[in-house]
Design a binder for these strands. Structure first.
Lengths: 401, 401
DNA sequence: CACATATGTTGCTGCTACAAACTTATGCGG
DNA sequence: CCGCATAAGTTTGTAGCAGCAACATATGTG
């Protein structure tokens, strides 16, 4: 059984030739998807809660949950003692034996994780490399780790697929890494290589976009329809945009490159960068937490000046995003969260000065809520999207092969 | 019968508390909507073409068209002589007796138009004003014109509603005009006022966003899923963004303000403006066509310099949009189309210099395709969206009242 | 212990789209 | 001019889906 290789966010089928009609079986598919997605994103809950959220009849929900249970995607347990009148409703849980394998290649390590349906990171293996890994290195290292994990995972459940979070531009159509400046990758078909080597379905996405998606689903952007995410990492500024509750992909999957907006003739990430902060603090390296602590503890004018200079540029970039996209919330991750915490009102004033009043009124600027497992969950989420979109078809397709 | 007042683009129902489940009647609604939308946007066509495009069974399409016909939204006519083997398929036409009334207030005139389902502008009345109209002026003038038109329109068909294209920021929730700098309007409830006065449903939208929508449906962005539109008018630069085939609204309806991106410390529309072009050409005023002709005929270095300076800034703004949104096409309207035609390769080079290579590869930069009726069609389109989203429910609701 | 309340369960109904069989209208080749 | 191939309309019956009503069950309250 050869794995197939899919595009970035979202299952390939949604890209298929647009046919606008909808038949009765699409209906079932949609409702199964709605329920499984509610559980995957919202966690275990009473069946009656699903009834309320979907707006479907309770007999319909019972039937749908039964089908998902039969497909080993969820299971029901005894009702919680709720101290409420009325018959208690059974709890519906996602079946965590369905897992995705997440892969995140970086300049100094390859991290491979196992993420259960529902979003819990079950396992996480970091393989440090002594040089910047080539695409082939990354594939071989991950494949080796996966080979070791696989027997255990398939004995207790099934592997839905592989998801890769890459710091670089990923072509949606086929998961080709067009350009990864820090990894020095150009046009590397990582997805195809991994599919070939491991025999699993593979999806590939941009790391910051995936982080945006995860903050949207589980973090600081939860429940919002319009959100913009900026992430500051040692290697630059990445971003992601959520529109209408879904990650913005663009025509080819490159959308969301907020770090490369040309703010005053140069890229935003040239003016706003982690290195200058470290230098101002007199450090050569620091963990994200350490940087934030030192930054908040520092009271020197020199550091304040650097932070304000960076907030000026960041503010302008946020203002542009606010004018163009009119989001409900702007979420800042990485060191951008740290400089936000350092002087939030200054940043807000800078944005206010450059954005239009009306869209500015509605926007909140907040730090990211999630920590280090963000990219593992994001890569896995990419993989789960196919299953979530068609819970019935997915199992069938796998069985038919 | 009192008219109700709705938000900007899109029918209010879609904003209702998100219920994710879908029942059988939603299915019917969706398929009726799909067929009516195909006809409204694609024009009259053979029933068999609808079958092919929807992917539905031909008996299903026959039933759906019959229902639309019974609701007087479409009618079938004799098949075209196609010179093809096989039984000819009847032509299905939108029923043009369903009309929307479009209103466009400007600094020197109020234009009211009648637009038929299908997008044809049936009538267009321009009322010049001797001063910049207040919101009340605009409402009274339009209401008077509508009162005169109404008997004729209701005798032959029905008025679906009123659509208003306003040069300013419009709050989606209730159609309030938050800020219209050139009209000098602030927080004017034009929609509510018009609904009150005329008794019709009213929807209000931003003029440039509506223009973007129309270029997307009928013009230079036809069939695309991701498109960005910049419009250059005497009063500034407006914009609109199409994402996933739908106009981007943002959290409150203000999205798409591309003219106010802060390119080098000032708004784009300060650096790129029509006045400087006229001045360079030694003109004080000119029609759009005239400006374009003079611009293309001119060979002076002075004009070339002004054009190139403007293209520099426009190029940077387009590059930002390309990096963030990764559109398939960037469409330029108004005088922006004129400076594009003047030196398209220069603009392309400017964008190339500032945008990332990958998203730049996929983008075309083209002039707008549609002319002066753009805003009439756009305002009407806004009105038709409710009908298109639920062809059955719409008629019913009106009848029930 | 009776009652109100909320939910699960069961059997039936209506709606929707589909499939199959048949019919009709056209072009084409002899 | 006729028969055949083709493509589409039409008719009739069917499968699947969600909803609904009636009944059953489990909890809290007075």
């Amino acid at each position: 059984m050869a794995g197939s290789q899919r595009r970035g966010p979202g299952p390939a089928s949604l890209r298929a030739p647009r046919v606008s009609g909808v038949a009765t079986d699409d209906l079932r598919k949609h409702n199964l998807s709605a329920i499984l997605t509610l559980l995957h994103h919202g966690g275990s809950q009473a069946r009656s809660a699903l009834t309320a959220q979907t707006g479907l009849n309770r007999s319909t929900v019972a039937a749908l949950v039964a089908e998902l249970e039969q497909r080993r995607l969820v299971y029901e347990t005894e009702p919680d003692p709720t101290n409420q009148v009325g018959r208690p409703s059974p709890r519906v849980n996602v079946d965590e034996s369905n897992v995705a394998i997440a892969i995140n290649p970086e300049v100094d390590a390859i991290t491979v994780g196992v993420v259960a349906l529902g979003g819990r990171v079950v396992q996480r293996i970091r393989h440090d490399t002594d040089r910047v890994p080539t695409a082939r290195d990354a594939v071989e290292i991950s494949a080796r780790i996966i080979r070791d994990l696989e027997p255990y995972l398939t004995r207790h459940g099934r592997i839905v697929g592989l998801g890769v979070a890459v710091p670089g531009l990923v072509r949606a159509a086929d998961g080709l890494v067009r350009w990864g400046p820090h990894l020095e990758w150009t046009d590397e078909p990582v997805g195809a290589m991994l599919a070939e080597t491991t025999g699993h379905d593979v999806v590939v996405g941009n790391d910051a976009s995936l982080a945006a998606m995860v903050e949207h689903i589980y973090g600081a952007g939860r429940g919002l329809r319009e959100m913009v995410y900026f992430n500051g990492s040692p290697s630059g500024i990445g971003g992601g945009v959520v529109v209408g509750g879904a990650l913005l992909e663009g025509a080819s999957g490159y959308a969301g490159e907020l770090g490369h907006t040309r703010n005053r003739g140069v890229d935003l990430e040239v003016r706003v960068n982690r290195g200058d902060l470290l230098a101002a603090l007199g450090l050569t390296s620091a963990s994200p937490d350490e940087l934030e602590l030192r930054l908040l503890a520092d009271t020197s004018a020199r550091v304040a000046k650097v932070v304000h200079a960076q907030l000026d540029h960041l503010g302008a970039a946020i203002a542009d995003a606010v004018n163009i996209l009119n989001p409900q919330r702007v979420v800042l991750g990485g060191f951008l969260a740290s400089i936000l915490e350092k002087d939030a009102s200054y940043l807000r004033d800078r944005v206010a000065a450059e954005a239009l009043a009306a869209p500015f009124e509605d926007v909140e600027i907040v730090p990211a809520a999630l920590g280090s497992d963000l990219l593992m969950i994001g890569a896995a989420e990419l993989t789960f999207q196919g299953l979530l979109a068609d819970p019935a078809g997915y199992g069938q397709a796998a069985a038919r092969r």
